[in-house]
Design a protein around this nucleic acid. Structure first.
Lengths: 209, 209, 209, 209
DNA sequence: TATGAATGAGGTTTCATTCAT
DNA sequence: GATGAATGAAACCTCATTCAT
């Protein structure tokens, strides 16, 4: 009984995660989600109360999945630069993952392109936490006093290189006629972003010396 | 005559540009656009044929405006690195511009997050052209043989740092509680992206030497 | 359960059958149908998907009713001429019936005057089957070799005398100020068409003898 | 000036005649007519006052054309049966004519299938006159006292064989997959209807003798 | 006089939600 | 507890007509 109930609920969550990721909140209808989940048209409201509430649940659900599958915390014994690489790698894995139903970071990218008031503050907090981590990594690598503004800008440079991949997948297929970056390339791509960005970070040392 | 004649059409274009940029295609209703343009609900279909066609017109219109206001071609006498800076600066000016009604590159970013079949191939072509320009600049700066794949990745790194600002403006306000990068900061931010990226580009020289 | 369940659907079908028959496809609005069925404006799309699909359903529904109420197949033991009369009588009963909600053959006549792409191939098939039956009756009565073209023309003469009554009912009221042929007259009118047409059919015998 | 004015008016009339004949009153839009006539969208109301009034003009215009091109009155010296044949022939020529822009009798058939209140009484009168002619021909041929009701029924049989061809052209193409009766066949088809119907008419003599 | 712009009414359809069982 | 039916609001679009020049 509870099993069945949860199955429908779970199907809705899975279908909605995929559809919201692909077509956005406004572009996805409740009927579509229910069809995809082989559930009754009334089931979204029954299980979640509203489309909005379902969306919020999807945000939380995909975030949990991302955390479970690709934990971001690196080992303690690494050097700063190794930690940086590990962080980028884990971040890219989350973004490029195809095994997750839906994809939290693609939803984040969408939210950045077009915020829905429905997403609430959850995404805010999560992104702020990530930025803080990157800022700390930058300071560790830089190893010198460095002004707040510069760190913010470098964080932007790094975050954008990563999150942009979240937008790109479909957009590229549509607009650029290029193969999107695929999960198989994740390590080599993480290597690129790490090297490219480390060079940039270190560049600023000159001036602050 | 022509002034009066196309007043409504122009108002619709201006209002739609702003609203599509702010709220996306699916999130903006024809009624909203007409209200904002103080035009009759039927006027979109009279002047453009459909909401889709209006959207396409907005894409073309904002692109023309961007080209007129901030031409991307730099002077010939500059060094490669100066040209790179000029390109980034002009690109950022377009992205951060608030004077344009609507903003082509914010629409591009939105399209990347959530393609509408309505945008057709126009955006494809424009973005491809921009990427080609950046690839050429990279090759000029690098000054050595460099493999295709590496150039593509560096182009990604540079494009993403720029275009991400298009997403960020509203997204930041919503999600990050930080002041967005403002047009006043454009030169200093272009400087940052230039320096950060040049360091990255040059980093690859080591290996190819 | 099923009774209640499909009440609205059935009401829509009944109302639509009457209205489409009276005013044609283009001349009938969904709102009108829903008003007449005391149903919500959205119910047509809920139950049938679209106005077009409702129209197709009405075609099928009225056809089924016609078949159920007035089967065309005559007894086996009759003479050819008796069979012919029985066929005409049943055909006229269908056309002149007022008890059916809507009337399949009036819709057929309308479709012939102004085809809607919506009717699809259903009407095609049904009419072809009826013509084939009449052609067979003609050959049985004629009892001699008779060329294809002549049979086709006689079939036209017979079919038109019958189906024309489908157009006439309202048209006559409007244009001719004459009482339409009524269901009460059906036997006597079938007698007329039979006699008139049998004379015509037999007339051709002279030449083929 | 007047020439130009009349040209637009005439173009509208021609285009409307064709479109109303093909697609019916409700199925034809004013914009469509103006496009087809290469005239301004406002020109229908300018020249005719309204779509309704244009329709009435089309009825009158196509009727005049039919009368001019194929006069119905046969020579005086003919026998009754020859007159009958001539009448049917001229009637069919009108119905099957493709040289007329639009076609009065196809509009009549449409009106019978689906009267528009716009057609007024003109069609009524015209059709009544035709029926009267046929009734007279029948009485001449029959040459005996014959009751009113029988004449009416025979008139129906004859009129329907003819006018049904007006419906059939498009309807057949759509629904019957048969070549419609073409203008080239008109004489042979008129011969068929004449012979078929004369046999029917004469059949009634037996009983009234 | 003739026309392109503009309009208001009404068309079909979509959609998230609620109802009744 | 779960569902198919039903709904009201609002979406996009069409259309005959009118307006302003």
């Amino acid at each position: 009984m509870t099993d069945r109930k949860n199955r429908t609920r779970q199907n809705l969550l899975d279908s909605a995660a995929v559809l919201f990721t692909e077509k956005g909140y406004a572009g996805t209808s409740v009927a579509e989600i229910c069809d995809s989940a082989r559930a009754n048209i009334a089931s979204v409201n029954y299980h979640f109360g509203s489309k909005e509430a379902l969306y919020r649940s999807v945000i939380g659900y995909t975030y949990d999945q991302a955390n479970t599958l690709y934990p971001l915390d690196a080992g303690e014994k690494m050097s700063s630069e190794e930690k940086f690489y590990c962080f980028i790698l884990a971040f890219l894995k989350r973004i490029l993952s195809t095994s997750m139903t839906g994809n939290f970071y693609k939803l984040v990218a969408k939210e950045m392109a077009e915020p829905t008031r429905e997403s609430g503050t959850l995404i805010n907090e999560i992104i702020s936490a990530k930025r803080a981590k990157i800022e700390k990594l930058i300071r560790d690598i830089h190893d010198e006093d460095i002004d707040e503004e510069t760190v913010v800008r470098m964080t932007h440079s790094i975050v954008s290189q990563c999150l942009f991949l979240g937008l790109n997948e479909k957009g590229r297929r549509h607009h650029l006629k290029r193969k999107p970056v695929r999960f198989e390339d994740v390590e080599s791509f993480a290597r690129h972003i790490t090297d490219f960005s480390l060079a940039g970070i270190k560049y600023y040392r000159k001036f602050t010396l």
